[in-house]
Amino acid sequence: MSGSWVMWAVWGAPFLALLLLVIDDWRMQVLLLAGLYTLAAATVTAAWPLPLAAAQLVAGWLSGAILAIAQNIQLRRGAGPPSPLTGRLFRLLVAAAALVVIIQALPTLHAWWPQVPRRVVFSAMALFALGALHLAWTWQPLRLAIGSLTLLVGFWLIYAWLQHGLLLSGLLAVLQAMVAWAGGYLLVQGSSHEGQA
């Protein structure tokens, strides 16, 4: 694993995931998600051929686009209130605590997947934890979808070093697009329900 841009990508991905957790503006969230996929794809090029990583990147961007369209439809029916500053601070604190735990447990976690570079294990576990925090905190379909996709990006980082194959990587890309599609669908259906209630 070489190249300073790969290094940047490995450390940048958890940072973007952290921003995703605290930022409420949906446009920024979609942009950050696209950035997260770009960094993850850059990291994965160290293990996968470029076309395979690019296919995942396209699937990720497509997921962002699906969520943006769904959110746009939902906004026409009225947006929800933004979360208070204290709520965001709390999220930041819990995320920081989760990252500290991951750093502490990194030697043990790396022993689970010794063939995966240590920095990548950290990045993957951080994305996994930050994605799971999204899922634990909200019922809101956009956040749920973004959290699920963050978590799946974390999984992809480890998976890329463990498995190679066109069909498996293709199915993983479909899986990510499907998560976005399901999240977007729930976003639209939920808002139509609220509109009619």
């Binding site: 996994f128 799971a132 899922l135 019922w139 809101q140 379909p141 749920l144 979808a145 959290g147 699920s148 978590l151 799946l152 974390g154 999984f155 480890i158 998976y159 899986l175 998560v179 399901a182 999240g183 729930l186 259906q189 939920g190 139509s192 329900h193 009619q196 209630a197």
Partner: peptide
């Protein structure tokens, strides 16, 4: 059809949380 999405949203979260664990 107007449907409450709370349950399916929860299911989505649980399913996505479990799937990477099984695959790993």
């Amino acid at each position: 059809r107007p449907t409450a999405t709370r349950g399916p949203a929860r299911y989505l979260a649980i399913w996505v949380l479990g799937l990477p664990l099984v695959l790993l």
